[in-house]
Every structure is written in structure tokens, then in C-alpha cells.
Amino acid sequence: MSTINFATREINFKIVYYGPGMSGKTTNLVYMYSRLTDDRKGQLITLDTEQERTLFFDFFPLELGEIQGFKTRFHLYTVPGQVYYEASRRIVLSGADGVVFVADSQASRRPDNVESLRGMLENMASYGLQPGPVPVVLQYNKRDMDGILTVEDLDADLRADSWPRFASVATQGAGVLDTVRTVMKEVLSRFE
């Protein structure tokens, strides 16, 4: 839920990157962080395990700048994708204004994508967040790998008819900025 603070004159939005373990959520954040100039970003926080798997969340604030005297920023988060961390995943999703679902294109990960999306919708519902009023953007990541699903198969698995979607290679940055730009705009268009 976006927050408007008239005292500190700030407006904040929250965007959460969701998806199965190892799909590339952290890679998305790290890439966009590397591309933003210093005045556009606050500190990047990563709470991860020794194996660099997300344990709680990654986070950084993306500063849009000042609009009508209000400092406007998007708080970007990733959830931990590993099945085991369900409770933490749910916490991070709370209050999201927009969601990016990062799917892993590898055919072997097909059931994990489907299960993660199902969990995401269930967790959103538990907070009264409805896809639609809360925009969802899909990202089909790891398009550079062998043994990947076709875009049509991913579309069919992930109900892509209703949501904007992007193919990506997050490690190379392909599709990363298009995805974040789209979710930010979708969030903004619903602001009232």
C-alpha cells in the first residue's frame, strides 16, 4: 500500500519480486542497482545465506526524485524463493503495491513455477491483495539456457493472458529494466 507522508513530504511505493528459488530475483535487483546512478538509489540490503540464497529479503529504495515537493520512491524487495522459507516470503509480500513474478524458463523447473505462482496468489489473497488492482508483471528468465520451455508453454502455465510479460536474461540485464519500468508504471497508473 503506497504511503503518503505529508509531514516528511514523502510518497513511497512497494514492489516485490516473487518466484521460485534460483529463478533470478536477486539477480534482477543487483543488475538494476548497478545501472542506476548514485542519486537514484539508497543502500542495497541483502539478507542471505552463506550460499547467497536469499534468507529474508533483498531491498533497496529507488529514488524517483521530487514531485510537487514530495520525495517519491519505490521500495524494491525480493522474497526468498526456497520452499522452506514460506513464512518469510509471506511477510515480505505484505503491503505490496505491485508484484513481479520471475519464472525460471528451464523445463525442469516447470512445477516449481506453477507452485510458486499458486503460493503467491494465495499469500496475496491473505492480505486482501487482488491481482488486477495490484498489478502483476511476469518475467520469463534464463532465456539463454538450454532445455527451456517455449514462451507459449510458460504463458499457458502462468495465466499470462491477463498480465504483461517479458523474456529476460537477468545475468546479462536483458529484460530487467523493461520489467521494472512496466511494474512501476502499472503501480503509478493505479495511484489515487
Partner: peptide
């Protein structure tokens, strides 16, 4: 709730153009 200080339509338009600018830098 007193929102008169913020003109939402203008805010959205300006924010949208800022988003474009940031990612083309």
C-alpha cells in the same frame, strides 16, 4: 485525510516521465 496539497493527475504524469528518464540514463 487532507489530500488537497497533492494534485494526483499531475503527479502521475510527472512521475511517469521521470521513470522513463531514469531508465534511459
Amino acid at each position: 485525510t487532507d489530500r488537497e496539497e497533492l494534485i494526483v493527475a499531475q503527479f502521475k504524469e510527472f512521475a511517469s516521465s521521470l521513470i522513463d528518464r531514469i531508465f534511459s540514463e
